[in-house]
Amino acid sequence: MTEVVEKSRLLLAQDLVKALEGNDETAADIILDKIGSMRESMLFQEVGKLTRQLHDTMNNFALDSKMIELTSTDIPDAKERLNYVIAMTEQAANQTLGVVEDLVPISQDLSDQANKLSNKWDRFLAKDMPFEEFKNMSQEITEHFSQTKEKVSSVQAGLTDILLAQGFQDITGQIIRRVIDLVQDMETSMVELVRLSGSKTHTQTAVEEPAGMELPGPVVPGVDDKANNVATSQDDVDDLLSSLGF
């Protein structure tokens, strides 16, 4: 309580004693009223202060619960998502490397065969080949054609596999974007927390809601498929669509 208030109360009390000693009832009543209203206004001030404190505590609490959600759910989720990114990139790299390792010997075989035949063909053109050997060469050329067809088609299949493996870039890109959004959310919360603890006179800022429908993006196993409301394979999608008359 301030000294000014103390002093004015003391003065009022002295005036009251004087009025009562002088039998001045009217003056005494006025002074009593003044003291009463002073008490009331002080009471209101206290209630105001308490309300303010309660309001601040509630705001802190709201922020705390947001932080709790971030630390208890969102961050473990983000870790799962990033682990999934590692798994996907590893899988794509292994798939690509595996196909390359399979295709290199195939292309080497084809090249060796072509070289061998080309040497023989040159000798044939130079009329430096006995007939028996020419018959063998014809047989080898026939075999080379059939093997080439077969091997080139496995090279093409391998190239398609390599092509599809690059799909990881899109999927992981979408997942990483979501984690970036989370980091941004965290940053905003931290700044708000610092602001709150630094000064009690803060104004509540409205949390911006993203416009439109939320797009959950790629399903991360163990994170997004818990609620059983997502399709986890193309078969799931096909079943759902056929149940809709597709």
Binding site: T160, G217, P218, N229, A231, Q234, L241, L244
Partner: peptide, 26 residues
């Protein structure tokens, strides 16, 4: 990559002719 059941249903209702989820095969 959107795979929520309600999304697939929404796409069907909007008039999509086919729905493939990523990652997909050739």
């Amino acid at each position: 990559a959107e795979a929520k059941r309600e999304q697939i249903i929404l796409a069907a209702q909007t008039g999509v002719n086919g729905y493939v989820i990523k990652p997909f095969t050739a």
